[in-house]
Deep mutational scan, measured.
Amino acid sequence: GSVVKEKKEKALIEVRPYVEYYNELKALVSKISSSVNDLEEAIVVLREEEKKASEPFKTDIRILLDFLES
């Protein structure tokens, strides 16, 4: 629970300088966080969101995924 939350919060802070739609990304992460149990599940849902998103938000999600998977 809290470790996953920390990882996601740290990821958002780390990617902030590189993303165009930070507030939207943060809102998406919050929405996903409330419906998943762990980081792996969150990553799966983020990948689905990435497929549906259009640029440049798609790239923002990709940047976040790269950080979460590192």
Rank of each mutant, 00 (worst) to 15 (best):
G1A: 12
G1H: 13
G1Y: 01
G1P: 13
G1V: 14
S2A: 13
S2Y: 02
S2G: 09
S2P: 07
V3H: 13
V3G: 13
V3L: 12
V4K: 04
V4A: 10
K5S: 12
K5W: 15
E6V: 05
K7Q: 14
K7N: 06
K7Y: 15
K7A: 15
K7F: 15
K8C: 15
K8Y: 15
E9K: 06
E9V: 03
E9A: 03
E9Q: 05
E9L: 10
K10L: 14
K10Q: 15
K10S: 11
A11V: 08
A11Y: 09
A11N: 05
A11E: 05
A11K: 02
A11Q: 03
L12Q: 02
L12H: 02
L12I: 04
L12N: 02
L12P: 05
I13E: 15
E14D: 06
V15T: 01
V15A: 07
V15I: 08
V15M: 03
V15K: 01
R16E: 10
R16S: 04
R16I: 06
R16M: 09
P17S: 04
P17K: 08
P17Q: 06
P17E: 06
Y18L: 09
Y18T: 04
Y18H: 06
Y18S: 04
Y18E: 03
V19W: 02
V19D: 00
E20R: 14
E20Q: 15
E20Y: 15
E20A: 14
E20H: 15
E20P: 01
E20W: 12
E20C: 15
Y21P: 01
Y21D: 12
Y21H: 10
Y22W: 10
Y22C: 03
Y22R: 01
N23C: 09
N23I: 11
N23V: 12
N23L: 11
E24S: 04
E24D: 06
E24M: 06
L25N: 00
L25Q: 00
L25Y: 01
K26L: 09
A27Y: 07
A27S: 08
L28N: 00
L28V: 04
L28C: 02
L28P: 00
L28K: 00
V29N: 01
V29K: 01
V29Y: 10
V29T: 04
S30F: 10
S30I: 10
S30L: 13
K31F: 11
K31D: 11
I32P: 02
S33F: 15
S33C: 15
S33V: 14
S33T: 13
S33A: 12
S34H: 07
S34Y: 06
S34W: 07
S34D: 14
S34R: 07
S34M: 11
S35E: 12
V36T: 12
N37W: 05
N37P: 09
N37M: 06
N37K: 09
D38P: 02
D38L: 10
D38N: 11
D38R: 06
L39V: 09
L39E: 14
L39I: 09
L39F: 13
E40L: 07
E40A: 09
E41Y: 04
E41P: 04
E41V: 06
E41K: 04
E41D: 06
E41R: 05
E41Q: 09
A42H: 04
I43G: 03
I43V: 10
V44N: 12
V44M: 12
V44G: 11
V45L: 14
V45N: 08
V45K: 12
V45H: 12
V45A: 14
V45G: 11
L46P: 00
L46G: 01
L46Q: 00
L46S: 00
R47A: 07
R47H: 12
E48H: 13
E48Y: 13
E49W: 06
E49Y: 07
E49T: 06
E49D: 03
E50Y: 12
E50T: 06
E50W: 14
K51W: 10
K51C: 13
K51M: 12
K52M: 11
K52N: 12
K52D: 06
K52C: 09
A53H: 10
S54C: 10
S54A: 10
S54E: 10
S54R: 08
E55S: 04
E55I: 11
P56E: 08
P56N: 04
F57A: 01
F57M: 02
F57G: 02
K58H: 03
K58M: 04
T59H: 13
T59N: 13
T59V: 06
T59L: 06
T59M: 09
T59I: 07
D60V: 03
I61Q: 00
I61M: 03
R62I: 06
R62M: 09
R62H: 13
I63N: 01
I63K: 05
I63H: 04
I63T: 08
L64C: 03
L64G: 00
L65I: 05
L65W: 01
D66C: 14
D66Q: 14
D66Y: 14
F67S: 04
F67I: 05
F67L: 06
L68I: 06
E69V: 08
E69W: 08
E69M: 10
S70P: 14
S70A: 11
S70R: 09
